[in-house]
Simulated scan of single mutants.
Amino acid sequence: MDRREFLKLFSVTVAGFALFGCREGVFGPSVKAAKKTPAFADFENEVRLALSKMKPAMELVRIPMPSALKTPGASTENRFGMAIDLDACDGCGKCVLACIQENNIPLSGRAQAARGQFMHWIEMCGGVPAMCFHCGDAPCEKVCPTGAANHTPDGVSAMMYKRCTGSRFCGANCPVGARKFNFEDPVDSGRSLQFNSDVPVRTKGVMEKCSLCLQRLQDDRHDFKALHPGEHWRGRGVTTACAAACPKNAIIFGNWLDEKSLLVLAAKDRVLYAPKAVASLDPSIVYMGERR
Rank of each mutant, 00 (worst) to 15 (best):
E77D: 13
K32L: 13
M1W: 11
R236M: 12
K55W: 03
M131S: 11
C125H: 15
A178H: 02
V201G: 04
R48H: 07
Q218E: 14
K162D: 14
V264K: 11
T240E: 07
I251N: 04
V206S: 01
A244L: 14
S30R: 11
N78P: 05
K70I: 09
W233E: 07
C89H: 00
L193I: 10
C213S: 04
G73N: 14
P145V: 03
G21L: 11
K8N: 09
A172L: 15
L257F: 08
K162F: 08
N150L: 10
H222K: 13
A158H: 00
V26R: 10
K94M: 12
N45C: 03
S167R: 03
L97M: 06
I100P: 00
A41G: 14
A266V: 03
C140G: 05
N255F: 03
V12F: 14
Q112K: 07
L51T: 04
N249L: 07
D219G: 10
I84F: 12
C210R: 01
I252P: 03
S75D: 11
A114H: 12
C174W: 01
L51S: 05
I105A: 00
P145N: 04
N104C: 09
L214A: 12
S284M: 03
A50L: 02
R191S: 06
P186Y: 02
L60T: 00
K268S: 15
R202I: 14
D282P: 02
C22G: 14
G147Q: 04
P186E: 06
S192A: 15
A158W: 07
R48Q: 13
G235C: 07
M65G: 01
R216N: 13
E259T: 15
V176Q: 09
P139R: 05
